[in-house]
């Protein structure tokens, strides 16, 4: 889900753009150090692969099909920082050349997909990728990666005042879950096929305790984002709670409080993510 320009309110896009700049810088520096600068062609062609992979349809029954999103697959094969750079490059090309996603909304889209999506996709692999639960970890990575990006995007839209009937919101959450499970299944299937073709492609998880910190920050932000989305599906509950506890203007109070909390938590994620990438590269 690429957010176009005109959807996010000014505080939301401005804050997220300001946060995306240092995050992108950290990721680029970390990837460059781990990879040496002349390997840029490799990352570029792998980005082109992710573009092209969307042409291969995976049948899922009942005449429907899905395709790979790619954050988790890139993270397992290239490592988190290079994967983040590749996803950022893809989003930039899509925003500028293909009008898919906005330019002012590039920061939010990068944070949703190239930072949170890649981190969430890599974390399970990092924790359990070497052991008995390797396949399950890869599956979980794909699921979490799509789920994290979608929930963040949805919460940003809701914070910006885009209105959605609660029933539609519930249905779209269900659809996100389905496509997240599909991404998990596709990622797992492609990684096992890759390991059959040439075992060296899929890297073994390296030990980097700082990743846990990044994961913790990510978890906090997702919890906040999930809270925003959940609160919007059940506004009546929040309203009655607020009225019972004696807040005069329940909705207004809730709205501003949630946006501040969301922005603060997203800031925390960025700090944690940036620190993680710096430590990895050190």
């Amino acid at each position: 889900m690429h957010i176009p320009d005109g959807f996010l309110s000014t505080p939301v896009w401005a804050t997220l753009d300001a946060l995306a700049l240092p995050a992108t810088g950290f990721a680029a520096r970390a990837a460059q150090r781990g990879f040496d600068e002349s390997k840029a062609p490799l990352l570029g062609v792998m980005g082109a692969f992710i573009f092209a992979a969307q042409m291969i349809n995976f049948p899922v029954g009942m005449g429907t099909s899905g395709h790979l999103v790619g954050g988790a697959l890139l993270a397992c094969t290239l490592g988190p920082a290079p994967a983040s750079v590749v996803m950022t490059a893809i989003l930039a090309i899509q925003a500028f050349v293909f009008q898919d996603g906005g330019v002012l909304a590039l920061g939010p889209n990068v944070l949703n997909m190239a930072v949170a999506g890649v981190l969430a996709g890599y974390l399970p692999y990092h924790l359990w990728g070497g052991g008995r639960f390797r396949r399950a970890a890869i599956f979980a990575g794909g699921v979490l990666s799509v789920l994290a990006s979608a929930v963040l995007a949805l919460s940003e839209l809701l914070l910006s005042g885009v209105r959605m009937p609660p029933s539609v919101l519930a249905v779209s959450l269900g659809l996100f879950l389905v496509s997240a499970l599909l991404e998990g299944a596709i990622t797992m299937a492609v990684v096992s096929a890759l390991e059959r073709i040439q075992p060296g492609f899929v890297r073994q998880p390296a030990s980097a305790p700082a990743l846990l910190l990044g994961g913790l920050g990510l978890f906090a932000v997702l919890l906040a984002a999930g809270g925003v989305v959940f609160a919007s599906t059940a506004p009546d509950g929040i309203d009655s709670l607020a009225i019972r506890s004696g807040i005069a203007k329940p909705l207004a109070a809730y709205g501003s409080g949630a946006s501040v909390a969301g922005v603060v938590l997203i800031f925390l994620l960025l700090l944690a993510g940036g620190r993680m990438m710096r430590r990895r590269s050190a």
Binding site: V45, A53, N57, P59, I197
Partner: peptide, 29 residues
């Protein structure tokens, strides 16, 4: 047409080919 498994294999082949192409480009550059 492709089954799910065959689509995954196709993507893995595309990945490997892209990777090989990237290394060739890298050496040439």
């Amino acid at each position: 047409g492709l089954t799910f498994r065959a689509a995954a294999d196709a993507l893995a082949v595309l990945f490997a080919r892209s990777f090989a192409r990237a290394e060739a480009i890298h050496r040439a550059m």
